[in-house]
Computed example of a mutant assay.
Amino acid sequence: MIEANLSQTHQRLGEIIYSYYQLTKPRIIPLLLVTTAAGMWMAGEGKVDPFLLLITLLGGTLAAASAQALNCIYDRDIDYTMERTRHRPIPSGKIQPRDAALFAIALGTLSFILLSAFVNLLSALLAMAGIVFYMAIYTHLLKRHTTQNIVIGGAAGAIPALVGWAAVRNDLTWAPWLLFALVFLWTPPHFWALALMIKDDYAQVGVPMLPVVAGEEATTGQIWVYSLILVPSSLLLVYPLHASGLLYGLVAAILGFIFLKKAWLLKQVPTDKDLARSLFKFSILYMMLLCAGIVVDSLPITHYLVGTLPNI
């Protein structure tokens, strides 16, 4: 009997922990950390202290988790209405909004303490600015009121790149702001591709995503425009900023060509959800590989190998 009660207690505790884990929307966080890491390696020119990396990524994880938990509280009404989100912890009744709020505040507070104590105050303030911007600007002011919600709101998702650079250099120069701009420009094609796939869900709850208000043709046109700006902008890290080298430039050019091809194909058939899904999935891979290109390009071994090429 005692063993059965202990088993039930452990099972219940596991379910509670998992619910709080789900509250942070964990699938979103890795992409934010990738841009943070890219900013750190670019700032450190391939040399990043392991402890600094660990604390910065941990602080960034906690800040992002806090923002997502707060978002779940704010959007619990539309989450309950949409079938896709109805089973999230708050609308399903697994976590109460008050408990979620305390959890989010604790995560944000711990993030600030870690970053300010073990990294620097600038990185800590930037992480907090990301939470505030995501909630106050995107979630509250923009998401339910304008088709430009994801365009302006994309700045929140771009802040981790600044956090990464600031963690290493304790300043902000042109290079991290360009990385910020790349994430900012990438966000509309990425998110609008998703919005094309779940257009009916947004329409059901009255969220004015661009495909709902302007239609698929206008949306794919905007995706194409942002893609045309994003791809050449990604090469500015090579020239004139010289923040990254030829290896990154090659990676950015190849990825950019594929990105443009997929955006163009979607523009030709705006209602094709399979093409939208293909672009959405590739956009994730694009950003991850672009950031990986920044990291690998910054390594001393890469500089050495590239330097030997003229002698081959």
Rank of each mutant, 00 (worst) to 15 (best):
T187Y: 01
F133S: 03
W186I: 02
I198K: 13
T173D: 07
T81Y: 14
L142V: 04
Q96G: 12
Y134R: 10
G164F: 01
A181G: 07
L172Y: 06
A101K: 06
R98A: 14
R84Y: 10
T85K: 14
L179M: 15
Y138R: 12
L126Y: 05
I150L: 07
W177L: 13
F191H: 12
W186C: 07
D99G: 00
F112K: 10
F191P: 10
G164A: 00
K94W: 05
I159M: 03
I137F: 09
A129Q: 13
Y80A: 15
A101D: 04
V183G: 04
A136C: 12
V168K: 04
M82N: 08
A156M: 06
N170P: 13
A106T: 09
F184V: 06
F191S: 14
V151D: 00
L172W: 02
L142K: 09
I150F: 00
A106P: 08
D79W: 06
S92D: 01
A167C: 02
R98K: 15
D79H: 03
K94S: 09
Y138M: 12
I137L: 13
L107R: 02
T147K: 13
R98Q: 14
F118W: 01
N149G: 04
V119P: 00
A124P: 08
L194I: 14
T147Y: 04
A124K: 06
D99W: 01
F184P: 01
T81E: 14
L179H: 08
G153Y: 09
W165P: 12
A181E: 07
M82D: 03
L185M: 05
L121F: 01
F112E: 09
M82L: 11
F118Q: 01
L110Y: 02
L172G: 08
I90F: 07
I198M: 15
K94Q: 13
P176C: 01
G93M: 00
P188L: 02
D171G: 10
M197V: 15
M82I: 06
I90W: 06
L178A: 09
L196S: 04
H140S: 08
F180Y: 08
A117Q: 15
M135C: 09
F180N: 07
R144T: 03
R98S: 14
W174D: 11
I152P: 03
P176T: 04
H87T: 15
W177G: 03
A161V: 13
L185Y: 03
A136Q: 12
T85L: 11
A181F: 11
K94I: 00
D77F: 15
Y138C: 11
K94C: 01
A156Y: 04
P97R: 12
